[in-house]
Design a protein around this nucleic acid. Sequence first.
DNA 1: CAGTGGTCTAGACCACCAG
DNA 2: TGGTGGTCTAGACCACTGT
Lengths: 245, 245
Amino acid sequence: MTGPEIAVDRSSPVPLYFQVAEQFAAAIQRGELAPGDRLDSELQLADRLGLSRPTVRQAIQHLVDKGLIVRRRGVGTQVVRGEVRRGVELTSLHDDLARAGRQPSTSVLELATVACPVEVATALDVTAGSEVQHLRRLRFADGEPLAVMENWLPLHPVRLTLDALQARGLYAILRAAGIRVRGAQQRIGARAATGAEAQMLGERRGAPLLTMTRTAYDDHGRYVEHGAHIYRASRYSLEVTVAER
Amino acid sequence: MTGPEIAVDRSSPVPLYFQVAEQFAAAIQRGELAPGDRLDSELQLADRLGLSRPTVRQAIQHLVDKGLIVRRRGVGTQVVRGEVRRGVELTSLHDDLARAGRQPSTSVLELATVACPVEVATALDVTAGSEVQHLRRLRFADGEPLAVMENWLPLHPVRLTLDALQARGLYAILRAAGIRVRGAQQRIGARAATGAEAQMLGERRGAPLLTMTRTAYDDHGRYVEHGAHIYRASRYSLEVTVAER
DNA sequence: CAGTGGTCTAGACCACCAG
DNA sequence: TGGTGGTCTAGACCACTGT
């Protein structure tokens, strides 16, 4: 067993372990490595690629975390599945839609600086009543309403503008402002649409909605955004991949 | 800055990096390390604990993956939050409820060997029509109906029995049979309850339900279970924590 | 500039599993 | 018994950060 051809470029700024991980992931997605197939052992790989074992190991661990492969001591490393579905990650709806080949658009319903409501203040860890930016957007995919998203942001150096929000999505704006979102806590549930919500989304009153609240934090461990979103359940669902280490 | 007192036991079978990670996590949850607090640097920790830097690093990386802390090159390591919420992990509803101090109970509606439906066969990667175990359970929390869960399992050495399912939850049974679930793909959505579903769950027809389908795989990368579950949205929601590395 | 985390190396010993 | 992954060590160089 030699496995797919992997080549590393030591002059590249991309870490070696990442180059290796990406090439294995690509081989799996191409079907070159089928579910159940065994990978070479760490020692074989290290030898074949001219890398140290810890580096190879780091690459493989990366794939385990993504749920692509499984390892067993004393046995070896095997492919779990070929089809890779994207899970809930730190992406904006805008990017998700664009990646799926659908045309995202946005109508900004509200954009203002307000006194922070108590529930939001708890989530963002700021004092209630302090000033925060508040926005509410109606999001479309291919011209059809998909979601209503409400967000609160502590006062950052970030200036949110209508133009930017209609073109780019919130997370892209944050990224451009040098804010690196590192993680988030999300709660996912469901409830019935109110009359107003139904009207905006083109559903009937009482229609099932998928709800998500999210609090995201950055580089510094500071909370940068809290969101409360509702999605048309008939048009949207979420994927999550879980893998043990 | 010295941080919380951490002691490692080299005679313990628990890996050193895991001992360290757990003690830091506990200190964060106790509030001893508050959000925004800095941890000692890797070199300081390695020196203080008498461990090598890679081992300390492995411990800290573990906490980053759980979303407890954030690291920045050139700066240091900081605590993100104190309150740790349990996310969507590889736990059964039974265990989740028990941990939350609620009394789980189960009524098995169906338990039989059937020909595998096509959609399930795709998910489990078996040939359609082959024999699989099928079960359907109505789950209660503190005596109130909470969810209807339907599962399909390829023919394993596992013998599912009514008694076991009423007492223990599916994942505990699998674990006891030596099957180690390593990961899963989940899809989360919402829809309206049918008349029959509403009656079982004590909701009205059309009431919003949270839906989840899950395909779980084991040690060998084999799919061991596919489930289609519906939860009363009024009583249940899911938490997910996402962290970038 | 000094200090941080990110990456990489070359070994080592062990627990576990299959043949 | 031989090979696998899991853990651990003791170094090294680098990119990045704040002062």
